[in-house]
């Protein structure tokens, strides 16, 4: 095992030792490279390469329905995109969808976590039930809601609405109600996530600081505002970041319920890019939309990470 390369150096102990350190580092690097290579090649092939190809594609007119019009168009797709009303409306829908679902998840999740935290019995039920929605496929969730919950007359929500005197509603056919519905579905599925994370975070707060605060005569509200909230802030910010990223690229939960409809009422940017590419088969323009979505994602996450670092 004695490294012969080092023995050859032999010009003095100091030089030799440095070489030996380098040789060790080199050996460690090679071992690391060998271990990392498969995963990183796969990641390059399945993420970085597609990204390059996506950007390249977005510079083409590539219409699978009309192949004879295909060709390099440079920034033409982006020029069209900027004056595309459907793009701007889908961006707005994305922001509304993301903003409202994330806000609802955090507020309800936090409220529920605080509530459950104080419960002496039954916490286990919450922890168990909360798992169910988050492990399900959004596609299955969307399908269940679309049919068994929201179908006019047949669905339970509509049944309740009728019995509450509000009458039968076209939950997924009316633009506003459809938007409310997809937001509600996403919130239903992912609030347990916020709940579980915040509950775990709450449970890890040391009890003695609350005892100290109580001795300092802080009221329950003051304890929440001055102690709980600041201490939970990292967890809350983390939930917001994670949920925002997911909501921006939500697909199945909308696609299976409304497919973006009625019209484009629930068409978030992600869905628009999909429909353009795979329903209308304008792949070049769809690619430009996907790039736009990537840019939006980067901007929003940049803002969120800046917020996380602040203070």
């Amino acid at each position: 095992m004695a490294p012969s390369a080092i023995a050859a150096a032999g010009t003095g102990s100091e030089a030799a030792s440095t070489d030996y350190g380098d040789a060790l580092a080199l050996r460690e690097r090679r071992f690391a490279a060998a271990l990392l290579a498969p995963a990183f090649l796969a990641l390059l092939a399945t993420t970085t390469f597609p990204l390059m190809f996506l950007i390249w594609t977005s510079a083409f007119r590539m219409d699978l329905a009309m192949p004879f019009t295909n060709g390099f168009v440079g920034f033409e797709n982006y020029r069209v995109l900027l004056s595309d009303e459907r793009f701007w409306s889908s961006l707005l829908v994305s922001l509304v969808y993301t903003g409202s679902t994330v806000a609802l998840q955090v507020v309800i999740g936090l409220a529920l976590a605080l509530l459950v935290m104080d419960m002496k019995r039954g916490q286990g039920w919450f922890r168990l039930i909360a798992i169910l929605p988050v492990v399900l496929s959004p596609a299955v969730v969307g399908m269940i809601w679309r049919t068994f919950m929201l179908a006019p007359e047949f669905g339970i929500v509509d049944f309740l609405s009728i019995n509450a005197g509000l009458g039968s509603q076209n939950w997924l056919g009316d633009p506003v109600l459809a938007m409310v519905s997809v937001i509600a579905i996403h919130t239903w599925q992912w609030t347990p996530f916020a709940f579980m994370v915040l509950l775990a975070s709450l449970a890890s707060l040391p009890e003695d600081i609350y005892e100290a605060a109580r001795l300092d005569r802080a009221s329950a509200w003051q304890r929440f505002r001055r102690i709980t909230l600041p201490l939970l802030r990292p967890a809350i910010v983390m939930v917001v970041i994670m949920r925002t990223m997911v909501a921006l690229t939500a697909f199945a939960a909308i696609f299976t319920v409304t497919a973006g409809g009625p019209g484009t009422a629930t068409e978030i940017l992600n869905l628009y890019a999909y429909r353009k590419s795979f329903t209308e088969l304008s792949i070049g323009y769809g690619a430009a939309l996907a790039v736009a979505l990537l840019i939006v994602t980067i901007i929003i996450s940049g803002i969120l990470f800046a917020l996380r670092r602040a203070k």
Binding site: A2, I6, S13, E14, S17, Y20, G21
Partner: peptide, 22 residues
């Protein structure tokens, strides 16, 4: 840990560059 400089001998053999397991 590999020393930056100097020599380690065990039983009069220079082991400065010998692997831990050897």
């Amino acid at each position: 840990d590999a020393p930056t400089a100097g020599r380690v001998f065990i039983d009069d053999k220079d082991v400065t560059f010998t692997d831990a397991r050897d």
